[in-house]
Nucleic acid binder design. Sequence first.
DNA 1: TAGATAAGTTAGCCATGGCTAACTTTTAAA
DNA 2: TTTAAAAGTTAGCCATGGCTAACTTATCTA
Lengths: 156, 156
Amino acid sequence: MTKLQSQGREPFEAVDRAPEAQAEGFATVRQAHESEMAEDYVELIAELIELRGEARPVEIAERLGVKSPTVTKNISRLKAAGLVRREPYRAIFLTDAGRELAEACRRRHRIVVAFLLSLGIDEETAERDAEGIEHHVSTTTLEAFKHALQKFQSGK
Amino acid sequence: MTKLQSQGREPFEAVDRAPEAQAEGFATVRQAHESEMAEDYVELIAELIELRGEARPVEIAERLGVKSPTVTKNISRLKAAGLVRREPYRAIFLTDAGRELAEACRRRHRIVVAFLLSLGIDEETAERDAEGIEHHVSTTTLEAFKHALQKFQSGK
DNA sequence: TAGATAAGTTAGCCATGGCTAACTTTTAAA
DNA sequence: TTTAAAAGTTAGCCATGGCTAACTTATCTA
Ligand SMILES: [Mn+2]
Ligand SMILES: [Mn+2]
Ligand SMILES: [Mn+2]
Ligand SMILES: [Mn+2]
């Protein structure tokens, strides 16, 4: 219970930070939210291509829980961003850039899920929470998750 | 390395889920984002009141990294939501509801930060990532974080 | 106690990502 | 092969949360 000199932090103690550092944190969150739509879409499109050979707007809409005009609009944004290839009324495919982003997102998603599962969280909750958390995990934190997972892997 | 019957999941294995379950996950994320502004503001307002005795728009703007008209607009939303009490050109105070929400958010924030720190992540990264992650952590996951933290507390 | 400066507000702009209603195109059935 | 159903698009609406420019109010200082 006594403070050890090297860690020097009680759990649940408030960290008071410089205003600029705090601002930078919020800015990072806002940035993450800007890329979120693209990340979730390409990840899902990759999944559907793997599962079905192609990604169709209906299915994207169903799995995202949004209506099809929303999908049309967002797909055209992805196309403008060079992540997706597609002609009207046809299925959606990923460009090289899209495929790369998708792969990175899938890897990250799976690590987050595996990490939450290793904490004893049930699958539904792990998946639900990971869907949001994944966009806010820095590479540093992702590495820490992997590391903790490895430790868990060997003897609990 | 062999699958144990009870856990039955390799790390990084893809979980394939029912479309409705997946959609529900995305809906949960969208909902979390709807409450995010309110949560971050009341949390920050509570901090400033503790630190300074009152919360002023300038300081809120500085710490959030946004401009003051944004703060004015959002504060009026919080007022409409009954979280905040305030007259024009005066400092901002929390209602009972606002104070309760702020307290819950601060507790959650600190648990997330403490948990990330316990993984060996540096303070800056922990704070930055927590700022986003906190809004996507279910009570189940929060409990798991607390539990892991306790375990860490005693012998590593 | 002015007048200058700082703080706060208002008005109006913009991008994002939801939605519905109405229309078009494709696909499947009769 | 026609036609009905399903899928996809377009147009236009809305709320959110950023922003700047211009104005008002409050505070500080000479
Ligand atoms: Mn996601
Ligand atoms: Mn995901
Ligand atoms: Mn936050
Ligand atoms: Mn988020």
